[in-house]
Computed example of a mutant assay.
Amino acid sequence: MSIASSAKEAFVISSVAAGIMLSGPSLVKAGVSADQNDNKHVSIETSQIIRYGHMGQIVENVQTKLTNLTLYNGSIDAVYGKRTEEAVKQFQRLHHLKVDGIVGKETLTKLTTLNSSPKELVFGDHSEEVEPFQQQLKKLNYYEGQIDGIFGPLTLKAVKKYQKKNNLHVTGKINTPTQIHLLSNRNKKGKTLKSVKVKAIQTTEVKSSVTSIAKSLIGTNYVWGGTSPSGFDCSGFIKYVYEKADILLPRTVNEIWNYSKDVQKVGVGDIVFFETYKPGPSHAGIYLGNGQFIHTSSSNGVTISELSNSYWNARYLGAKRIPNS
Rank of each mutant, 00 (worst) to 15 (best):
S195R: 09
S228W: 05
T203Q: 05
V198K: 07
R251D: 01
K199R: 14
W257K: 09
V223C: 08
G231D: 07
G190V: 05
V196F: 12
V198F: 06
I238N: 03
V241L: 03
L193H: 14
I256H: 05
P250W: 09
K215P: 03
K239L: 07
V198L: 10
I256G: 04
V263S: 11
I256V: 14
K197S: 02
V210E: 04
S230P: 01
I213G: 07
V210Q: 01
Y259Q: 06
I201S: 09
Y259W: 03
K199Q: 15
T203W: 00
V253T: 15
K215Y: 07
S212R: 15
G190M: 08
L217H: 10
W224I: 04
I238H: 04
T252L: 05
T220R: 13
S212L: 12
W257G: 10
V206C: 04
A245H: 11
T220P: 13
D246T: 13
Y240A: 00
D262M: 10
K191R: 04
S212Q: 15
D246L: 12
T227Y: 01
T204Q: 04
K215G: 06
D233V: 00
S230V: 05
I256E: 15
K189A: 02
Y222M: 11
G219P: 10
P229K: 11
A245P: 09
R251V: 04
E205A: 05
S209H: 09
E243V: 01
T203E: 09
V223W: 06
K199V: 15
V196M: 13
S228R: 10
T192L: 05
V253Q: 10
L248V: 04
K239Q: 14
A245G: 11
Y240L: 00
S235R: 00
D233F: 01
V241P: 03
Y222L: 11
G236Q: 04
L249G: 02
K215C: 06
K197H: 10
G226V: 00
F237H: 08
K189Y: 06
K191G: 01
V196T: 12
K191Y: 05
T192F: 05
Y240M: 01
V198R: 06
Q202N: 09
S235P: 02
F232E: 12
T203R: 07
Y240W: 09
T204Y: 00
S208T: 12
R251T: 09
L193P: 02
I201M: 11
W224F: 15
Y242E: 03
A200N: 04
I238S: 09
T204G: 00
C234S: 13
S228K: 13
S209R: 14
Y259N: 08
Y259M: 10
E243G: 01
F237G: 08
G231N: 07
R251K: 11
Y222Q: 13
T192G: 03
G219H: 08
L249M: 02
I213R: 10
C234H: 05
Y242N: 07
S195K: 14
Y242M: 01
I218P: 03
R251G: 04
A200D: 03
S260P: 08
D233C: 02
C234N: 11
K244G: 07
I247Q: 08
K189M: 01
L248K: 14
K191Q: 06
P229H: 07
